[in-house]
Design a protein around this nucleic acid. Structure first.
Lengths: 245, 245
DNA sequence: CGCGAGCTTGATGCCGATCAATGCATGTGG
DNA sequence: CCACATGCATTGATCGGCATCAAGCTCGCG
């Protein structure tokens, strides 16, 4: 109970989009001057989410979107009969909670995979502000649209790729997003378990593990538990899409 | 060439959302009076798309969204190496083209599965109007959000269901949407081939065919080519989600 | 130090892919 | 009007990739 309360503590101090180093990746893309000031008024609070704790759960009433400031999240949906599917992993600058707009309730769980912080974006106020700032409106719509396109990519992966192709595509996607944030694209630490990767990719954890081992044997990766080094990015790229059919 | 020109002919006469019998399913949900008039100004043109022809293709410049007025569409994405994945089937009242907002180019093909008509919703003008009409803005955001939620559902299906569960889930989804449009939910004519169903569900056409035959043997369905009758909806419902694990 | 969560690796089995043949409806040209 | 072509669907036989079951390993942590 105490832990649950701690999990939803809200940071009282202000954070400014205008001084955030993620502004080129996040909601403020392409905005300047006065627009950024207006956005600063909107996004006034952070929230800390300890590792393993939910930011929100399916069924929760929808009030806000969240921009990841630091840390790493997963989102997962469940069917009535208890099956779970990880639908995405989110890192700094990415937006969480878009699923809640349609029904005014969240439809998935968002769980921190490490100690994280998010910026709270009150949705009603965001809608009000996007009616004034067309650049913000445009950017918000783009974020939603890209989420749809990303989901289509995952469908393609789940519907037509074999296990090793899926893992290769997943790793390439991760390294690409890390590079966009100024991190090395050849060395990364996975924040999620094999089981979570497997759930995302529609595979069992053993299959994920075997694929990692295979990539290591083939000299594509070095794998030390969650510490991954990409030795041969070109070969990894080729592994995605040498269709057998 | 003549056929291509015919495919993009635009109907010159006006159609009004205010008098459309799909308005409770489409963009105008929850709007009345003056708002509907404004929407009528925006959505002024239809376009006919003959069976088999694309409404748009991946790579096309994005200008408009489309609301299906009559007919039936599929959307599909392709990877560089030529694999295809059907990402959805759209019927009357559903919106096509949301994928294009993010990059200002369409990222998937939308193809008519029967002779169809769509209403053209010029995107720039829609953005302008949503800045004035908060009800329209809200509804538009809900449509995008629900598309995201729908995609998550497909991921769950592709990532964790077995063949027969997938087909059962697909059929239940179809009948539900048909019922919402006033059609019988026990008798339906599929507008897509077994191969297209298979692509959507991550299965081969033979597997789809076998699952249909199995359902017929079990007395759940009557299957005559594309004419499907649901004999036992409860059993169909149970087929989704008796997880083996 | 020992426990437990997470990871690796091996052996086996099953579901769905693949290959192949046949059936069925629609349409077309002689 | 029939012969034939064509596209789609069904069904059977076989194969392979991934799931499943099981055992041992690694590492962080109380």
């Amino acid at each position: 109970m105490a832990a649950a309360l701690a999990a939803i503590r809200i940071e009282p101090f202000k954070v400014a989009c205008s001084s955030c180093n993620l502004r080129e990746l996040c909601l403020p893309v392409g905005m300047g001057g006065e627009q950024l000031e207006r956005l600063d008024e909107l996004v006034g609070q952070r929230r800390s989410v300890p590792r393993g704790e939910p930011l929100f759960r399916a069924g929760d009433s929808f009030q806000s979107l969240y921009a990841v400031r630091t840390g790493f999240f997963k989102t997962c949906v469940a069917s009535e009969d208890g099956r779970e599917q990880v639908t995405g992993f989110q890192m700094a600058g990415e937006v969480l909670g878009l699923d809640g707009i349609g029904t005014e309730r969240h439809t998935c769980d968002a769980v921190a995979l490490e100690d994280s912080q998010v910026c709270i974006i009150p949705y009603q106020q965001l809608e009000d502000l996007t009616r004034e700032l067309s650049d913000l409106q445009r950017q918000f719509h783009k974020i939603m649209s890209r989420e749809i396109v990303r989901d289509h990519g995952v469908m393609l992966l789940l519907g037509s790729m074999r296990a090793e192709e899926r893992l290769a595509a997943f790793l390439l996607n991760l390294t690409q997003r890390l590079r966009a944030r100024g991190f090395s694209s050849s060395s990364l630490v996975l924040r999620m378990t094999r089981e979570e990767i497997g759930s995302y990719l529609g595979l069992k954890l053993e299959t994920v593990s075997r694929a990692f081992s295979k990539f290591q044997d083939d000299g594509v990766l070095e794998v030390k538990q969650r510490q991954i080094t990409v030795l041969d990015p070109a070969k990894l790229q080729k592994l995605v899409g040498n269709a057998p059919c």
